[in-house]
Design a protein around this nucleic acid. Sequence first.
DNA 1: TACTCGTGGTT
DNA 2: TAACCAAGAGT
Length: 297
Amino acid sequence: MTAMPQTPTVLHAPVIDWFDEHARDLPWRRPEAGPWGVMVSEFMLQQTPVSRVLPVYEQWLARWPRPADLAAEPPGEAVRAWGRLGYPRRALRLHGAAAAITERHGGDVPRDHAKLLALPGVGEYTAAAVASFAYGQRHAVLDTNVRRVFARAVSGAQYPPNATTAAERKLARALLPEEEPVAARWAAATMELGALVCTARTPSCARCPIAGRCAWKAAGSPAHDGPPRRGQTYAGTDRQVRGKLLAVLREAVGPVPQSALDAVWDEPVQRARALDGLVADGLVEPLADGTYRLPLT
DNA sequence: TACTCGTGGTT
DNA sequence: TAACCAAGAGT
């Protein structure tokens, strides 16, 4: 069981004050972004760096300023506009979320955490993030940044566990400020601290507002001792093949012949498996004449 | 729980 | 330079 801090609130002021001074001016943090802008940014930021999201986000919001605008287009258009952000199923899910918002919620991103969680592509983190950032609610927002900040500052470990644990959720709830607007500020501030200062590889403890209260630093910054953090191999995987296949379809204007897809990968068994997977995921639509395209439905 | 699912910059 | 890492979700 993780040690609970005796006085959790001592961290609030220094972290929030630091955020007041150092927060990045990101477009989804501006008031004009609105709940839909926040939701779009959260989908795009899943496992994807801010710098790569920025241009796609701007284009997306300019083209589809409301959920209903996106829902009115074929899902393949969302996949195409997703570009090279990676994990293109997120584009499909964002389109599905826009459709659900249009049908079930009158075109407005729901405020209720449970209704957010029911949307495709919205999990524990994204539901809490939208409720907190877009609507100022009090939720424990546990992303990779916050988990790392808490692991170090409170638990004294260099890295959090591979998967989010019940202990981490309990700790995050215990650390949450009581007042709703303060809690929302805290959520954004702890994420930003992890993104800018308490980074994974080489944290800048000299710039950290809570370095004096950091359990990991106090322990001498011991190296991670648990099980090795699972690496992400990519070369030669189905994911790489899927990426190459989908890139052809994204860049094509109309349907693509089988031969154009065959050209991106030598090994026919893996190639066929990857294409089948894309079709099964709804990212690719096979036509009766043997060609393929991004999905119209 | 552990695994899949993209892409590209950084070290 | 191969490995690490990036505002996770779904199964």
